[in-house]
């Protein structure tokens, strides 16, 4: 049996009614959820780039401040309100784009800001120096010379001076490469805390060994 024939004008009118009789609720919910996803994406992007976030860190250069024992990696909280070195003080820990290793970031403590005077410290140990005694070499000893940190730069050093590749290797870091300031340690959970500025009053009391 042939399909029922519809005169063309009435077909048009049917189409017209079809469009004017849409599934409105469906399309608006879709529309709305797409809008929310985009807004959420924009918000997340702005938050991560300008406010802060959390991140894994790797390496032993900040031991014992940031303990590291391989897996799982420590988890830190950082603030991007300090990007490009805004309001960074001597003694803060900053995360910066590595000046010589492209694509990598590093976390170190600021020892000097532009115009500050910093002592020369001999270099860190190399892989071959593992297990040697401190007397066998000249590693991380403060020397009798100083220098002025150049304009627009900061001088950074890892807290574990014996095993840190920092400004002693790559020189002063441009403040423009500073992305954020490390503000807290979230994981390992037992050691969670907010970081304090490392610069404190000198009371002449000898500091104790830290045993991990």
């Amino acid at each position: 049996m042939p399909p029922p024939r519809t005169p063309i004008p009435s077909l048009f009118s049917r189409l017209r009614t079809a469009t004017s009789q849409p599934h409105r609720p469906d399309s608006t919910t879709l529309h709305r959820s797409v809008k929310h996803v985009i807004a959420g994406g924009i918000f997340t992007h702005i938050f991560i780039s300008y406010i802060g976030g959390v991140s894994f860190t790797h390496g032993i250069s900040m031991v014992p401040t940031i303990p590291y024992s391989g897996q799982p990696a420590p988890f830190i909280i950082y603030s991007n309100l300090h990007r490009r070195g805004r309001n960074i003080q001597v003694g803060d820990m900053v995360i910066f784009k590595h000046p010589t290793r492209s694509g990598q970031t590093a976390l170190k403590r600021v020892i000097g800001l532009p115009g500050d005077y910093v002592s020369v410290v001999s270099g860190a140990r190399d892989e071959g120096d593992l297990g040697k005694k401190a007397e066998d070499g000249d590693w991380a000893n403060v020397k009798n010379q100083a220098f002025r940190v150049p304009e627009g730069h900061c001088w950074v050093a890892g807290d574990n001076l014996d095993w840190s590749r920092d400004s002693r290797v790559h020189g002063p870091v441009p403040l423009a490469l500073v992305q954020s300031k490390a503000v807290g340690l979230l994981f390992p959970w037992r050691e969670r805390r907010w970081f304090k500025n490392g610069l404190g009053d000198s009371n002449g009391v000898g500091k104790e060994q830290v045993i991990l």
Binding site: W139, G158, D159, L161, D162, W163, D201, K207, L212
Partner: peptide
């Protein structure tokens, strides 16, 4: 004023 930062040599 005299201030200090304590860093370490860990082995």
């Amino acid at each position: 004023p005299l201030k200090e930062i304590t860093q370490y040599k860990c082995n």
